[in-house]
């Protein structure tokens, strides 16, 4: 188990190194630079050049690359060109929106998907199952940003229950902040829940066909206990995989939803930074996200071992 984890960690590290080189050199091709953008139409060339020097943009490609990666090692992400504050501060501010949003929608989607999946599996082939699966088929097909638009129209514009967009900040109090995250979380959660429900159902059906379930049934255990205690526990592997993937997706893939609701999250930060050529922000956030994906995958693998004792002994 330890050897396996070490091997995985080494692979993750390698991925990070390659990713840093790819991101840095790819962004190098982007036309235009931050200095010119900051100073706009009327700026004279020498003012722009002076700003470039101030930002360190006049240095060579390799110098900047090693300066940046060297900083990353000591968790120094550098300073944003446009905001001229440490990138880590910007990221922390934005993660305070993205992280709760991702967690809430993940919790929401799990809370919907697991019962629906189990329910459908227990009533396989019956109308309830067909209905649940038809609904989930629809859920998978709905683009989350369109669903978000409809939610805004109904709950914010029409009923005026929640704000249509923007984020008041956690300093405004937990409730106003949470209120601003409700619609985005629902918009993100529902399509995810549809996928998760389908995975749960089919994983359960796989397990229900296995011998130990038949044994449990033969022992006279009630159906509900068989389902929740024995079957679901063993069906968790694919469900966990999907959950891990979804978390990684939710953290960065929310950029479109953040656009719909004007949430100052990580996705929007990267989006803005690309347009403002604030490349150091783009590079650092992408690296952070890549690292998150690697860590989450690692965690999923570890929980595999926890859920399935067979795997624990195997490696």
């Amino acid at each position: 188990m330890t050897a396996y984890l070490l091997k995985r960690a080494a692979a993750g590290l390698l991925t990070l190194v390659v990713a840093s080189a790819v991101v840095f050199s790819v962004l190098e091709i982007l036309p235009g630079d931050a200095a010119r953008l900051m100073l706009g139409f009327n700026a004279t060339e020498d003012a722009v050049q002076a700003l470039r020097v101030q930002m360190g943009l006049d240095q060579g490609f390799l110098v900047r690359y090693f300066h940046w990666t060297g900083g990353l090692l000591s968790l120094d992400f550098g300073r944003s060109y446009t905001y001229s504050v440490p990138v880590i501060d910007l990221v922390a501010e934005r993660a305070a929106v993205s992280l709760p949003l991702a967690l809430i929608s993940l919790a929401l989607s799990t809370a919907i998907a697991l019962p629906v999946g189990v329910f459908a599996a227990a009533r396989r082939g019956r109308p309830a199952d067909t209905l649940a699966m038809a609904a989930s088929q629809f859920g998978v097909a709905v683009p989350n940003f369109w669903f978000a638009l409809l939610l805004v129209y109904v709950f914010a514009v029409w009923l005026r229950l929640v704000p249509a967009g923007g984020f008041p900040g956690w300093s405004a109090g937990a409730w106003p902040a949470l209120k601003a995250l409700i619609l985005p979380a629902i918009a993100l959660a529902l399509p995810q829940a549809a996928i998760l429900a389908r995975v749960t159902r089919s994983a359960l059906l796989d397990v229900l066909g296995e011998d130990f379930i038949r044994t449990a049934r033969a022992k006279g255990l009630p159906q509900r206990a068989v389902l929740w205690r024995h079957a679901l526990r063993n069906a968790m592997l694919p469900v966990l995989t999907i959950l891990g993937l979804q978390f990684a997706f939710l953290l960065a893939g929310t950029v479109i939803i953040e656009n719909v609701f004007y949430l100052p999250g990580l996705g929007r930060l990267v989006f803005q930074a690309i347009n403002q050529r604030d490349l150091i922000v783009v590079e650092s956030v992408v690296m952070l996200l890549v690292a998150t994906v690697i860590v989450v995958n690692l965690l999923v693998d570890v929980s595999y071992a926890l859920v399935d004792p067979r795997l624990r002994t195997r490696t």
């Binding site: 991925t15 990713a19 960065a252 893939g253 950029v255 989006f271 992408v286 890549v290 994906v293």
Partner: peptide, 12 residues
């Protein structure tokens, strides 16, 4: 490739 956030990379 899998570790890259797909949508953000597409945007890049």
């Amino acid at each position: 490739v899998f570790a890259f956030p797909a949508l953000l990379s597409a945007i890049m």
